[in-house]
Amino acid sequence: MDSVLSLFYENREFIFLIIVSIFLGIEVISNVPAVLHTPLMSGANAIHGVVIIGSIIIMLQADPTNYFALILGFLAVVLGTLNVVGGFVVTNRMLEMFKKKDK
């Protein structure tokens, strides 16, 4: 019990941040028109590419002789970059089509 309590207490600020972010996420997209559902999903997809920061941190903290961590970390950087770059480029391509040319 104590360990659970201390877990909660030590991370109370994160838990607070998480709850606020959850409501923010709901609030921010609640008015999205159906037209933009696909680009929004795609844009959100690119944003969760922030995991890449985790993979960079792994690489920064890895011992230069720990090849297991280096190889997997490299793989993670590639995967994360694919998510970020591919995600933003695809979203941009979708949204380019929304440009109004008649004006």
Partner: peptide, 15 residues
């Protein structure tokens, strides 16, 4: 990472 992830997590769930 936390804000980005949670934002997408909750926005994605609502979607």
């Amino acid at each position: 990472m936390l804000t980005g992830g949670i934002l997408v997590g909750s926005a994605g769930t609502i979607l």
